[in-house]
Design a protein around this nucleic acid. Structure first.
Length: 467
RNA sequence: GUCCCCAUCGUCUAGCCUGGUCCAGGACACCGGCCUUUCACGCCGGCAACACCGGUUCAAAUCCGGUUGGGGACGCCA
């Protein structure tokens, strides 16, 4: 059995989005599952639109998700001589020819055909003219006009195209740069790619590429076309339709494990299992279980997975992850132990690190104001004596543990006959500024005696000043 | 328009290849309830689907054909 070799070949003409990343993930998983090789290849033959910074972004995105590659990155722009050699071979064998048709004319003819309700195809007018290379000549591949091209797709099953549907595609532009359909084939041949796993938007390219493989006398790789991802309103997920750069997920406080888990479950399944560790993914992944119909991007499910992984992440690590998000809010958190305790009270109630940081704010900054409705209800003249009492009791406490504080409030409740809620809410408001927060006794314990007393005093001042 | 692909709860999916165990299972979302110092978490329960029409068969979500619907592709972009 020969070694499995897959590749991910993005073009650096923009940020990496969910769709492309999912393709990378499936290729990576397939390679890892078979202990094969995963190659990164940058398809930068479009000189106009390719940019160095996007190469960096692609690499950074993949690194963030842990999709490590074994070979590459290869750059098509550095492989021009190789393509030229293969083009020449086809030319010499009469399997390709020069064409000097004006691109603008072709465009007009294409529009006309479309208007007539026909499939826009190149009519092959230069096919037998025996043109010599010139400054405005492209090279076209002589596509067979008879028979059919078919293959067994590992994702879709048998697919067949009538060759009459195809036309003589340009394989080398007038500027000497090969086009996508040709460069991919040459690359996949020379890099020994055994499995081509890509989006189903490439299905129409496949018969053309197969014909080129055959013209070059090379054996075919396996093809597996995976579904595209649709936006909520239907239609391919795109920049216009809600797709965001993959790194934006990181900025939004999404964990890489959550994104990976989400992407893999979109269009693939393994029984009833929803949560997969990286090892399980590698162990279970197979092309056969890919779904055949397109999936709709559902952010709710991503967020659910994210909150799941947020809960799973060990506190010290969660603290490390949270710090940059705190800093973004202008909170300098040097004490990682403190942040870990804070995170421990927030990990079950936030969906993202961004949310968690926002909720953590009061642990680092005293409330600047009190939520209006809550203040009206709980920070009243009537409660003031009780708050004074709480203050005194807390002040007298030794060990400031959650359990001890809990006991203190229980006692107070029995002694005063006040319900816990009537005790907790005013204090919560005083400490956090809102009526919603993590468990109050945890909050008190974490903030510490000094800070708690300070905030209680401020709340009391607020009450006395208000009435 | 032409070609290609696809079709199970609102969404992601299991089952389909190897018909009966499926009056279709899980998850997200949603709706109840429990827990409770608030909000969450957690737990329990509920809602909800085999697109349609024919055929094959003792029997079809599962096989075949058609219809409808959705998606993709039709560049000297990738």
């Amino acid at each position: 059995m020969t070694e499995v070799r897959t590749r991910f070949s993005p073009s650096p003409t923009g940020s990496l989005h969910l769709g492309g990343t999912r393709t990378a993930l499936f290729n990576w998983l397939f390679a890892r599952h078979h202990s094969g090789v995963f190659i990164l290849r940058i398809e930068d033959t479009d000189r106009e639109r390719s940019e160095e910074r996007y190469v960096k972004e692609i690499e950074e995105s993949m690194n963030w998700l842990g999709l490590n590659w074994d070979e590459g990155p290869y750059f098509q722009s550095e492989r021009l001589p190789i393509y030229r050699k293969y083009i020449q071979r086809l030319l010499d064998q009469g399997l390709a020819y020069y064409c000097d048709c004006d691109p603008a004319d072709l465009e007009v003819r294409r529009k006309e055909a479309l208007a007539r309700g026909e499939k826009p195809k190149y009519d092959g007018r230069c096919r037998d003219r025996g043109l010599k290379p010139g400054s405005h000549t492209a090279v076209r591949f002589k596509t067979s006009q008879t028979g059919a091209t078919h293959w067994h797709d590992r994702g879709k099953g048998p697919i067949c195209f009538d060759n009459q549907e195809l036309d003589d595609l340009v394989i080398q532009r007038a500027d000497g740069i090969p086009t996508y359909n040709f460069a991919v084939v040459v690359d996949d041949i020379t890099m020994g790619v055994t499995h081509v796993i890509r989006g189903e938007d490439h299905i129409p390219n496949t018969p053309r590429q197969i014909l080129i493989y055959q013209a070059l006398g090379s054996p075919l790789p396996e093809f597996a076309h995976m579904t595209v991802t649709l936006a909520k309103d239907g239609g391919k997920l795109s920049k216009r339709r809600g797709a965001i750069p993959i790194l934006a997920y990181r900025d939004r406080g999404i964990l890489p494990q959550a994104l990976v888990n989400y992407m893999v479950r979109l269009g693939w399944g393994h029984g009833d299992q929803e949560i997969f560790s990286r090892e399980e993914l590698i162990k279970y992944f197979s092309l056969e279980h890919m779904s055949k119909s397109p999936g709709v991007y559902d952010e709710e499910k991503l967020l659910w997975l994210n909150s799941h992984y947020l809960k799973e992440t060990p506190l010290p690590e969660l603290a490390r992850l949270l710090v940059p998000f705190l800093e973004r809010l202008g909170i300098a958190a040097q004490n990682l132990d403190y942040v870990a305790r804070v995170a421990g009270t927030l990990n079950t109630r936030s969906k993202t690190l961004v949310e968690m940081a926002e909720m953590a704010r009061f642990y680092f900054q005293a409330p600047a104001s009190y939520e209006e409705k809550g203040a009206k209800k709980f920070l009243t003249q009537e409660i003031a004596p009780t708050l004074e009492d709480i203050k005194k009791r807390l002040e007298a406490m030794g060990e400031f543990s959650e359990a001890a504080i809990n006991q203190l409030f229980q006692d107070l409740s029995t002694e005063t006959g006040r319900k816990m809620v009537q005790l907790a809410q005013p204090v919560r408001l005083a400490l956090t500024g809102t009526t919603v927060s993590p468990g109050l006794f945890d909050v008190i314990s974490i903030l510490g005696k000094e800070e708690v007393l300070k905030r209680l005093n401020r709340a009391l001042d607020f009450i006395y000043k208000e009435q």
